[in-house]
C-alpha cells in the first residue's frame, strides 16, 4: 500500500467519523465538531491531491484560502449557537422545533 492510498483511506475514514459524530449527537457543539472533522478531511484530500499530481503550490494556496473561509463560516456558526442558547436556553438540536408545518 503506497503512502497516497493510505492518505485516501484515512480521508474517507475521517469523513465518516465526522458524519457519525454529527448524526449521533444532540448537542449543537458536538455536531459542529463533527462538521469540522468532515471539512478537515476534505482539506487533507485537497493537499493530498496536490502532492500526488506534483501541483503542491496550487494546493497550498487553495488550502490557505479554504482555512480563511472556514474560520469565517465557523465563527458565524458559533455566533448562531450562542444566540440560540441565549434565546432558548439550551443547545439541544431536538429542542429547536418552534417552526413546524
Amino acid at each position: 500500500m503506497s503512502a497516497f492510498s493510505l492518505d485516501w483511506y484515512f480521508i474517507t475514514l475521517l469523513i465518516f467519523v465526522g458524519l457519525y459524530g454529527m448524526l449521533v449527537s444532540r448537542s449543537i457543539i458536538r455536531q459542529l465538531i463533527g462538521l469540522e472533522i468532515v471539512s478537515k478531511a476534505a482539506m487533507l484530500a485537497v493537499i493530498s491531491a496536490g502532492a500526488l499530481t506534483s501541483n503542491l503550490m496550487l494546493a497550498q494556496a487553495l488550502i490557505i484560502t479554504m482555512i480563511v473561509v472556514e474560520v469565517v463560516v465557523v465563527a458565524a456558526g458559533l455566533a448562531l449557537l450562542v444566540k440560540a442558547h441565549r434565546l432558548s436556553g439550551s443547545a439541544d438540536i431536538w429542542k429547536l422545533d418552534s417552526l413546524k408545518g
Partner: peptide, 10 residues
C-alpha cells in the same frame, strides 16, 4: 461545502 471541497480535490 465539505462535499464541494472533496469534489474539488478529486
Amino acid at each position: 461545502s465539505a462535499l464541494i471541497m472533496a469534489g474539488i480535490s478529486i
